[in-house]
Amino acid sequence: MYLRHTELLRDKVPAFGEYPFHLPAVKTMSRLEFSQPVTFLVGENGSGKSTLLEGIAAAWGFNPEGGTLNFSFSTRSSHSVLHEYLRIARGVRRPKDGFFLRAESYYNVASYIDELDEQPSFGPPLRDSYGGKSLHEQSHGESFLSAFIHRFGGRGLYILDEPEAALSPLRQMTLLVRMHELVQADSQFIIATHSPILMSYPGASIRLLEEEGIREVQLEDTEHYAVTKAFMNDREGMLRDLLGDE
């Protein structure tokens, strides 16, 4: 693993009643191990999985808004100070590639790439690494896949925050295929997600973030899987219960 574990420096935390230390994902955390090439962070909205993922990415050296380690832009400083209280343990081998992708600020990453390409350069345009055209000239889902397929090159650390946000179920399966190719090319993924499709990746470690702390679970034990399965198996019955129709 390029990233072996991350540890919260609990003795340095100013107050566990303040943001972001009051979040369920953070307040009970001591050390989070990464033992598999693919680790999923899952939990209900507000559990803190995106904040934790952002802290891990920033502690590694990524721009909090996303992109590669070389991206240094800042559109709006809204990230938490969590990364200042995280200690990360790097593996013996260093990754050759890396990317932090977060759905909510991917537009800003695309804009930064266009800005860099408008400046004088002695090399090929950055957009060539993303499929050959501006990410803004593609749909949201297409631009996500362009990064996965064209920019991610293997032997990398890829930190993804809700990558399914812009992807149809079929495109999520495309992402699974590409993720498997990259894992076989010595890559490591840490992903915050709500998608049972992505969580089904074989051999992945699924960490559930809840009030009591962080624990490892199986796909079938997640609420995401159980609710989706129950709804699809008895769609009419669940709709009657939800909508109060006879």
Rank of each mutant, 00 (worst) to 15 (best):
K229T: 02
S111W: 06
I190F: 01
A230N: 14
I149Y: 02
E18K: 13
L176C: 15
I214D: 00
T51N: 10
F73D: 07
G154L: 08
E104Q: 14
S143K: 06
L52T: 03
H224G: 07
D221F: 04
G132M: 07
Y85E: 04
R240S: 14
A89W: 11
A226M: 13
A192S: 05
E84A: 13
A25P: 00
Y85F: 02
V26M: 10
P64M: 14
P20S: 12
S205I: 07
P20D: 12
E137I: 13
S146W: 01
L126E: 05
L170C: 12
L101K: 11
P125I: 01
A58I: 03
R155T: 09
P202I: 08
D241Y: 15
Q172P: 07
D117A: 08
H140Q: 12
A204C: 12
D128N: 04
G43E: 02
V13E: 00
L219Y: 00
A147T: 05
M238C: 11
M29D: 13
S50N: 09
L219W: 00
S78D: 15
G203Y: 12
L8E: 00
M173E: 07
E246G: 07
D241L: 12
S35A: 04
E162S: 09
T28Y: 03
I190G: 00
P196A: 14
K96W: 14
F62Y: 05
E115H: 09
V13A: 08
P20H: 01
S47Q: 10
S35I: 08
Y19N: 07
S134D: 06
R94N: 11
F40R: 01
S47L: 05
D128M: 09
G61E: 08
K229I: 06
E212A: 15
R127D: 02
K12C: 06
R87I: 12
M232A: 12
F34Y: 09
S200P: 04
D186A: 12
E162I: 01
F122K: 04
P124K: 07
S205Y: 03
E54G: 06
S146N: 14
V42R: 01
L9D: 12
S78T: 09
E54W: 00
E220A: 05
D234W: 09
E137P: 05
E181F: 15
Y19Q: 07
Y107I: 08
R31G: 15
V109E: 01
E164Q: 09
M179Y: 15
F73L: 10
P95S: 08
E216S: 06
H136M: 11
A147Q: 08
S105V: 02
A165M: 04
V42C: 02
G213K: 15
A165G: 09
E223S: 14
V81A: 15
E118G: 12
R93E: 04
G237F: 05
M29H: 02
